[in-house]
Design a protein around this nucleic acid. Structure first.
Lengths: 117, 117
DNA sequence: ACCCCTAGTTCCCGCAACGATAGTTACGTA
DNA sequence: TACGTAACTATCGTTGCGGGAACTAGGGGT
């Protein structure tokens, strides 16, 4: 997204529904597939797999599979992935600070005077 | 987007293809519909209208129509919309700083050794 | 023999965003 | 009478993300 710089959203899947949340879930440390499914309430395994694969491809996380029974796979943020936490925090901060303004605007819009012209 | 805070992307259309670019185009000052079409190379009037309406509804921009012939409409950032420039800058900064890393990772992924289970 | 486990994969579907093209309004000009 | 202009609006079609449900692999437990 955003003009004037190479568009982030189409390039890395940050504008999508899950990538940001996954990064936030991995922030404290490595997590297993099933451990990610819980906080990401209701994500289907298909979508989680797709997201993790894309993030691995882009170097944001590593995937470590242990040859055990039952199988165990751990996902962990790379330094690159971890560096995303900073701009993410800026976005979260904006939301916290301005969400109510936005909702007010939306509410006011519903009851606005009919647009002239 | 991003866990732990109300998801921004679905709420305001920031994760989409155009909103961020429109905000960047409005940064220097008010712009007319046709003036926005030029820098947003190839956006169709339908999509531009949809985006502007959604942003107006969310209080990010104002729409001012002048009763002239031919008609003239100007769009301008509100303080709320302007406040989005800050987190946007953080995201752009991240991209500038880490884009090459990301592309390298993607390239390396193509030539990786086949994943062990 | 049967079900359970983890970490997926496969198939199919729906919806919303995006895109192309054409039509509309209201007036001023030639 | 026809054309031009700005800012749309309407219609249609495509694409891709995301989602649901079922299935897989290779063993372990009872």
């Amino acid at each position: 997204m955003f003009a004037g710089c190479t568009p982030v959203a189409p390039l890395i899947r940050i504008g999508d529904k899950w990538t940001g949340k996954i990064i936030a879930c991995l922030r404290p440390g490595p997590r297993r597939f099933s451990e990610l499914q819980v906080p990401l309430r209701g994500i289907t395994p298909k979508v989680l797999t797709e997201s993790l694969r894309a993030m691995e491809r882009d170097g944001l996380i590593t995937r470590t599979a242990y040859a055990e029974i039952p199988p165990r796979v751990e996902y962990e943020l790379t330094p690159l992935g971890r560096s995303l936490l900073e701009p993410m925090a800026a976005c979260c901060g904006w939301t916290k600070a301005h969400l109510s303004e936005l909702l007010n605007a939306r509410e006011a819009y519903k009851h606005r005077a009919p647009t002239p012209v």
